[in-house]
């Protein structure tokens, strides 16, 4: 079970969170067209390594947080609040 560092509540076990996948895709403007929405909903980089992703601390502060987690090792490098950015890059 992962430990997810919630920026508001501290490290909490994974089963307090719900997952929502890739946090690098950004919802397009409403008039951006079908291709933009297609990419938002469907196209995924699906990296083998560091992945910025959404987790909601549903059994805690209910914030949707960004978590940078390694999909190969499951290490967690950073987290940030819903409106905050993660650090530039993790080596």
């Amino acid at each position: 079970m992962h430990l997810i560092p919630c920026p508001y509540c501290g490290e909490r076990p994974q089963d307090e969170f719900h997952y929502r996948g890739d946090a690098t895709v950004k919802r397009p403007a409403p008039d951006a067209g079908e291709q933009a929405f297609y990419d938002y909903v469907y196209t995924r980089a699906n990296p083998r390594g560091w992945h910025d992703e959404w987790w909601q601390h549903y059994a805690g502060c209910r914030q949707w947080i960004r978590v940078r987690r390694n999909t190969l090792t499951h290490a967690v490098a950073a987290s940030a609040g819903p409106a905050d950015a993660l650090p530039e890059a993790t080596p």
């Binding site: 719900h18 929502r20 959404w54 909601q56 914030q63 949707w64 819903p82 409106a83």
Partner: peptide, 17 residues
């Protein structure tokens, strides 16, 4: 009930803060 609330919170917090 739970998925809709999470859907609302997701959009309010991250898409339309």
């Amino acid at each position: 009930a739970a998925p809709v609330l999470e859907h609302m919170e997701f959009h309010a917090q991250t898409v339309w803060p």
